[in-house]
Design a protein around this nucleic acid. Structure first.
Length: 913
DNA sequence: ACTCTGACTCAAGACGCT
DNA sequence: TTGAGTCAGAGT
DNA sequence: AGCGTCC
């Protein structure tokens, strides 16, 4: 059976890889993970992949749990059962939780740590508010104690069934005391979450770290306690053991009973081997007991040795003798026949009859009787068995590790493309996926509708929660502490606390859960979603004082097919400064004209086209008057630098030459014209802004002509570009992810209006005017918050402390930001991307500027390939984004971002790596 | 003690070869 | 030029 | 990954 499933996994993988290969021919714009896993840039393709990956993970997890169950069955309760068993069983989900935190990507560390915690929170809450009530609703039976066995299935016999509302109180589930005990243990495991809440109350980074350490120590000691407890209190372990074997035997028996006609000897033999854990070819008394447990022979309480003896007698053996396979098959067959005919007498100890009417009488008096077989099953070790278990675990784990990273990336991208709120992904989607199999098995086992089944299943949930929160929390805290990662888990922690608090209230004191309670607790799940939503959204607002996260990291590839406006002058400047320049030397053509900018622009544009982006380059027009002052200053500085350069050349100081030559770089009209020509030849649209290029970019974005503005200059935000990308060009050379800013979110989280935001930017310093001495990002934000506008600030500010520049033209600057001179008429409509004019391009590059023709041809080809596939329009609108620290340009920018980290903003001390 | 500012420094493109 | 990172000093 | 080359 494992082999069959293993076959599925392998076949699926092969299909996937084949799928990948197919994609490769036509469209490869995405990077296959590990070089062979398929990938896609289309949204629905992603969905498909997600489903497949998820299925694979579910399979893998079932392997791991089967394997670890097998281990447990082999070893039985003991030190292994107490410790390793849990860890192994939890490994796949643990890995899912932590893989994000393990990434080396420091930039994304904050979000990944948050993500790990969200997954943990999500699965805890899901266990408690979805799986838990499932036990109640699926496992409920009449709580009144009459012995009518007919209500075995609530849904079926509608006639004599009580009404739905009556059932709410009259039906339900009972559990034993041990279950409440597990609940209390689970509660204890949640205690550390309280500590994690402290940093948001206390405003100190150092204390935060101490708290982190204390929490870590607490969690570890709790974990040790938990393991120790289980070692010396085999109660809990025995429950799991029973649960495990019960699952196996039960499923077999169900198949057996569901086949009509002749008893299926093969399955009976399978059961026999299943029970015969040590594979010595015979079933002992202890092993038989396992069978009886699996049959749910008694609705609660232990199987008495007495009873086992009697059943043994049925098999013709007694005491320490063994049951042989042939005998086993014979008796089982007999039982089956009898059961079908229901001709058996009551005292003949046919356990199957009890199994069939699972909802047998509940004997409350026996509730307190010991649940545990007096002797734990002592099983002999079979190497083969171990190997099988081991390989199951190893295989499942390997598949999980392999798949989980592609799964999560796909899930994220899908979510962002489909506009799913991002917090739902780690909180709902991922735990949901990994819980599916658990939900199913829970339904199955709860459907037995016996106290024992309910108790076992609930215990299983509690201990599952306790284990996963302890293991995950330990690892999470350790990583965060050791790597000193930023973390802000206030919202998740609160949700866990509230949910588990409510659940504790429900569960700690009682053993009877009426049906209504199950339904009520279902409601907690949506409630927790709302709670988390308001906490994340609300909190950031509340914390807006510091660093709202209004930004989202994006993969470079996720901008496939997106139209992006780029400020050309900025790029040209960069190219001139950096491309092929050594001292005063630059890349030139034969005529001695500089071609650095062409080289850079060509390469970059090719790269963009190859990635499927649609760039629009916007060139600067005439600078506004205000900026002229600034420009004049720059000009004079450049003069100085030129003088310095000459001096340096004469003195031969290389460092100085280097330094000054950088400063003397100037983008000339000629450079601009060259680039425009190049771009037009490449089929890339070029727009000439009447004034500021940044402003024009923003206008294009506002007019929905482009998806976003890409720039390194934060002025774009001030100009109100709805979407703003930073580091778009960087990922190739550096490992910085693209940051996507959403102005509306920025405003929302800063809790400012656009006008206020503009004022803020002016205060922080802009190209148009000076800033006020002594006011940086922080103070500016505070002042704006407090007073609302520059005017009011000026009225209220302490003029002694802050020297306000004379003739401070803030109003003018504001006007430039608010109503920049941009071109809005339909002239812009001709933003069209066309195929490159190869001939013209080659002529221009090779003939006029001395480019290597082979290289040029090759690159043009590359870009053409990709751009032809660009035709596949994506249906999906640009994506909403979330969360980022706000920044402002100038030094102060750091003012607002960096403090964001330090400020211990209520969000909990974030530390920077 | 903690926060904020401002002054300082540094690097800045993109590709391919080894 | 720009931003990023660091550091010292001044301000609470 | 580091370093030279692109023109």
């Amino acid at each position: 059976m494992y082999a069959k499933n293993g076959g599925y996994i392998i076949i699926l993988l092969v299909i996937l890889i084949g799928f990948c290969g197919k994609t490769e021919g036509a469209t490869v714009t995405c990077e296959p993970q590990y070089g062979f896993l398929p990938c896609t840039s289309e949204t629905w393709g992603r969905l498909f992949l997600i489903v497949v990956y998820q299925y694979l993970i579910a399979l893998a997890q079932s392997y791991v749990s089967e394997g670890s169950d097998k281990f447990f069955g082999l070893v039985g309760p003991g030190i292994f059962g107490a410790s390793l068993f849990h860890i192994i069983g939890n490994f796949p989900s643990l890995y899912l939780v932590l893989q994000s935190g393990l990434s080396n990507n420091v930039e994304g560390a904050a979000s990944s740590t948050g993500m790990g915690m969200s997954i943990l929170t999500g699965s805890i809450v899901m266990n408690l508010t979805l799986i838990w009530p499932t036990v109640i609703t699926f496992g409920s039976y009449s709580l009144s104690d009459d012995d009518d066995d007919d209500d075995s299935d609530l849904q079926q016999s509608a006639e004599d069934e009580p009404s739905f509302f009556t059932k709410l109180t009259a039906y339900g589930v009972k559990t034993d005391n041990e279950t409440s005990n597990s609940a209390r243990i689970m509660l204890a495991s949640v205690i550390p979450f309280t500590l994690l809440q402290l940093p948001s109350i206390i405003n100190s980074t150092s204390i935060t770290r101490v708290i982190l350490l204390i929490t870590l120590i607490l969690v570890v000691s709790l974990y040790i306690t938990y393991v120790t407890y289980q070692m010396f209190q085999p109660l809990a372990q025995n429950r799991i053991f029973e649960y495990v074997t019960q699952q196996f035997v039960k499923s077999k028996l169900e198949t057996l009973l569901s086949t009509n006609g002749k008893p299926n000897v093969r399955i009976i033999k399978e059961i026999y081997t299943g029970i015969d854990v040590n594979h010595d070819g015979q079933v002992s008394k202890t092993e038989l007991k396992t069978l009886l447990v699996g049959m749910q022979l008694q609705s609660d309480g232990a199987i008495s040795d007495d009873f086992v003896e009697k059943v043994m007698e049925q098999f013709g053996v007694s005491g320490d003798e063994f049951i042989q396979e042939g005998e086993f098959v014979r008796i089982m067959t007999k039982w089956l026949r009898e059961t079908r005919k229901s001709a058996s007498r009551d005292d003949d100890f046919n356990p199957l009859r009890f199994f069939i009417k699972r909802n047998g009488p509940v004997d409350e008096e026996e509730q307190t009787s010991p649940l545990i077989p007096k002797e734990s099953p002592k099983l002999q070790i079979s190497i083969l068995e171990y190997l099988e278990a081991l390989s199951l675990v190893a295989f499942g784990t390997a598949v999980t590790m392999l798949i989980s990273s592609p799964l999560t990336t796909n899930v994220w991208t899908f979510a962002s493309n489909a506009n799913v709120p991002s917090f739902l992904i780690p909180y709902f989607v991922i735990p949901c996926f990994s819980s599916i199999s658990r939900i199913l098995s829970t339904i199955k086992s709860a459907s037995q509708k016996t106290e024992r089944a309910a108790s076992l299943t609930l215990s299983q949930i509690y201990s599952g929660v306790a284990q996963s929160s302890l293991t995950s929390l330990t690892t999470f805290l350790a990583i965060v502490y050791i790597k000193d990662l930023p973390w802000d888990v206030t919202a998740q922690v609160l949700v866990v606390l509230i949910i588990s608090g409510v659940m504790t209230f429900f569960t700690s004191t009682r053993t009877v859960y009426p049906l209504w309670m199950g339904y009520a607790i279902y409601l907690l799940y949506p409630a927790s979603l709302l709670m988390l939503y308001f906490l994340t959204v609300g909190l950031t607002k509340l914390l807006a004082d510091n660093a709202p996260k209004a930004m989202k990291e994006q993969k470079f590839e996720s901008y496939f097919e997106r139209k992006i406006a780029i400020d050309a002058s900025m790029s040209i400047y960069q190219f001139l400064i950096v491309v092929g320049r050594t001292g005063t030397e630059m890349l030139t053509n034969e005529a001695g004209e500089v071609t650095s900018h062409l080289q850079g622009m060509f390469n970059r544009t090719i790269r963009l086209l190859e990635s499927g982006l649609k760039p629009v380059y916007v060139f600067d027009g005439a600078p506004p008057d205000l900026k002229k002052q600034e420009l004049a200053k720059r000009y004079s500085r450049r003069e100085d630098a030129t003088a310095g350069l000459n001096e340096a050349i004469q003195s031969g100081n290389k460092d100085d030459i280097e330094k000054f030559s950088k400063r003397t770089v100037k983008v000339t009209k000629q450079h601009n014209e060259d680039c425009k020509k190049l771009l037009r030849l490449m089929g890339v649209p070029v727009i000439e802004a009447p004034s500021e290029a940044e402003a024009q970019c923003a206008a294009l974005c506002k007019a929905d002509k482009v998806y976003a503005v890409a720039s390194e200059d934060m002025d774009s935000l001030t100009f109100g570009a709805p979407k703003f990308l930073r580091h778009l060009m960087d990922p190739s050379s550096r490992k910085i992810p693209v940051m996507e800013f959403d102005v509306s979110k920025v405003l929302e989280e800063l809790n400012l209006t656009m006008d206020q935001f503009i004022d803020l930017c002016i205060l922080c310093g802009c190209d148009y005017c000076d800033s006020i001495k002594g006011i940086g990002g922080q103070t500016a934000l505070k002042l704006i918050r407090q007073h609302g506008s520059i005017e009011t600030i000026l009225e209220n500010i302490n003029r002694e402390r802050y020297q306000i520049p004379e003739d401070w033209p803030y109003e003018e600057a504001r006007r430039l930001f608010k109503e920049p001179l941009v071109c809005v008429d339909e002239e812009q409509l001709d933003i069209k991307w066309s195929a490159p004019d190869e001939e013209g391009l080659l002529n221009f590059l090779v003939a006029e500027n001395g480019f290597n023709s082979d290289r040029a041809v090759e690159k043009i080809k590359a870009s053409k390939n990709k751009s032809s596939q660009n035709r596949l329009e994506s249906f999906f609108k640009p994506v909403a984004s979330t969360s980022v620290p706000i920044k402002r340009k100038e030094t102060n920018e750091k003012g607002s971002k960096e403090p964001a980290n330090k400020k211990a903003k209520a969000g909990g001390g974030r530390k920077k790596k």
